[in-house]
Design a protein around this nucleic acid. Structure first.
Lengths: 247, 247
DNA sequence: CAGTGGTCTAGACCACTGA
DNA sequence: CAGTGGTCTAGACCACTGA
């Protein structure tokens, strides 16, 4: 028998289709594993693998003794691709460039709790720069990296690559927090982005951890009219994501 | 033997810890399943379940004949909880209210391609409203719902609930696209949010599909200083998400 | 207390692909 | 062509919990 598609995938996509098409509605009960074994002429492990995957994806809920049910449409839990700006811009056939504005090794500011937590009693590397697409300023970046968490950072030469790309490729992380807000361009930001003061800008702040240890924190300020954050979402593993830079 | 924790979970978290702690680095090879069977004194299915989960989470890569390897830290693929505003605000112990500004059934605008695609040759329901936290305007919402995809929408009474909450709970979706940008408050927006004209605002646009059929599209404009979109991220299933309304 | 899912075993055959 | 993972079987015991 040719295994064009694994049987557990067929079972999975059958129910996926029935649920998403509305033929099976939230609260509806699925057959028990024993019945599905007979229907698909397979072992229980195969049925279980298919239904476990659907449960992980949040499409169904499984309760012992009670059975398996179509889940309520969940709160929109979605996959967002937080951009590696360089890759995003190049994917749009624009030239990408990163210009370093400042690079220094320093102690955390005494009155800045966030910086002190990031430093963890040691030093910080400050890396400020400008992201450009097709030569036009797109975003200002202010980044701090913990020397304690990333000792190599002191000596790394990034060349034309932004430090974010290097970090993404070399430093494993376990947790991150991203905060997105809208701000007005200050005088400094406006000058760097070559926009009028007061231009609405998208501010993205991100902090990254490995376990409990802080790795880096970054503030990126995008020219609002030139940049949108776009995320495309699907259930579970079907998610497709992306970002977009406006023309 | 008491099954405090399933064995496949122990195997999984062992490698998770070694990878995330940096003890195992990207490109490092994991033992083959046969060896792990011996090490953990279990069957191959148990080992396979653990490693398959890690592969799904993106922490490892599996290649036939070649073996299993620690994956390069991935582009930041993350889970974002797009807020059910009502729930978010109540979770912060603020009172939530939704005020309907307009509700009508209408044809799509002839020159608006998006509206025509959403309507699919039939009618649209327009639902405009204002989200309030502790009585203060937080966001203006402009929503369109396809009558073709959601016939019930014509007769539903939402009461004090926003239509988004009702849709989330009743209509299964398969895909969504969210676009986040920064804009200046127009005169109308400024009046509704009781802010000065030109205040930076966060604009969230979302379109939702079931398979290829469009369900709804919505534009939410948040008072920038009062609202941040926050997302907390972890690898795979460990993701914790949330949003925050500034005090 | 009995039905249901969670986990596990000890095999098996096979597809894929790199040495 | 041989090593590795992908899939599957036909059982088994058990934890949980709702009828």
């Amino acid at each position: 028998m040719v295994m064009r598609q694994p049987l557990h995938n067929r079972i999975r996509s059958d129910f996926e289709a029935w649920i998403l098409s509305g033929r099976m509605k939230p609260g509806d009960r699925l057959p028990i594993e024993q019945d599905l074994m007979l229907e698909y002429r397979c072992s229980r492990m195969t049925v279980n693998k298919a239904l476990s995957a659907l449960a992980t994806a949040g499409l169904i809920e499984r309760r012992k003794r009670a059975g398996t049910f179509v889940a309520r449409p969940r709160t929109h839990s979605m996959v967002l691709d937080v951009p590696d700006l360089a890759a995003e811009i190049r994917a749009r056939n624009q030239t990408y460039a990163y210009k370093t504005l400042a690079r220094s090794v320093r102690v955390p500011h005494r009155d800045n709790e966030e910086e002190r937590l990031l430093a963890g009693g040691r030093l910080l590397v400050q890396l400020d720069g400008l992201h450009l697409a097709d030569g036009q300023p797109l975003a200002v970046e202010y980044r701090l990296v913990s020397v304690r968490a990333v000792p190599e950072i002191v000596d790394v030469t990034f060349g034309d690559n932004p430090p974010g790309t290097w970090l993404l490729q070399h430093i494993p992380w376990t947790e991150a927090e991203t905060r997105i807000s809208a701000v007005s361009a200050t005088a400094t930001i406006a000058r760097l982005l070559t926009q009028p003061v007061g231009t609405p800008c998208l501010k993205i702040e991100r902090r990254t951890w490995r376990r409990t240890e802080r790795i880096t924190q970054v503030q990126q300020i995008f020219h609002g009219a030139a940049y949108d954050l776009v995320a495309r979402f699907g259930h579970g593993t079907t998610a497709i994501t992306g970002t977009s830079v406006n023309p």
